[in-house]
Simulated assay, not measured.
Amino acid sequence: MKPPDGPGIGELALGPLMFGASITLLNANHFDVYFKQMPVWNGKILRRHGDVFERTSRGYYRAHGRADDTMNLGGIKVSSVEIERICNSADSRILETAAIGVPLAGGGPEQLVIAVVFKESHKPLMDLTNLAASFNSALQKKLNPLFKVSNIIPLPSLPRTATNKVMRRILRQQFSQTDQNAKL
Rank of each mutant, 00 (worst) to 15 (best):
M18P: 00
L155M: 14
T161D: 00
A99F: 05
W41E: 00
P145W: 03
A138F: 03
L26N: 10
A99H: 02
F135E: 08
S89Q: 14
A138N: 10
N72M: 09
A98L: 07
D68A: 15
E84M: 09
S121M: 11
P159V: 11
E110M: 06
Q173T: 15
G10F: 03
Y60T: 12
L73Q: 06
E96Q: 15
L17K: 05
Q177D: 12
V81N: 15
Q177L: 13
N42K: 13
L95E: 13
D51V: 14
M1S: 08
K142S: 12
P103K: 10
R47W: 04
G75L: 01
V102A: 01
I153G: 08
L139H: 05
N88T: 15
V78L: 12
G59V: 02
D69W: 02
G10D: 07
V166F: 02
H122D: 15
G20H: 09
T163R: 01
V78K: 07
I152S: 10
N164M: 02
T70V: 07
C87D: 04
E120H: 14
I23H: 08
G20Y: 06
I9Q: 10
R47H: 03
T70S: 10
N181G: 02
V117W: 07
L146Y: 00
H49G: 13
A90W: 04
G106K: 02
L128T: 13
F53V: 15
K165T: 03
M1P: 04
V113D: 04
L171K: 03
R85A: 09
L171S: 02
G15C: 05
F19T: 13
M18R: 09
G65I: 01
V40Y: 08
T97S: 14
R172A: 11
N72G: 06
N151K: 13
A182R: 13
N42S: 07
F175G: 07
N27M: 04
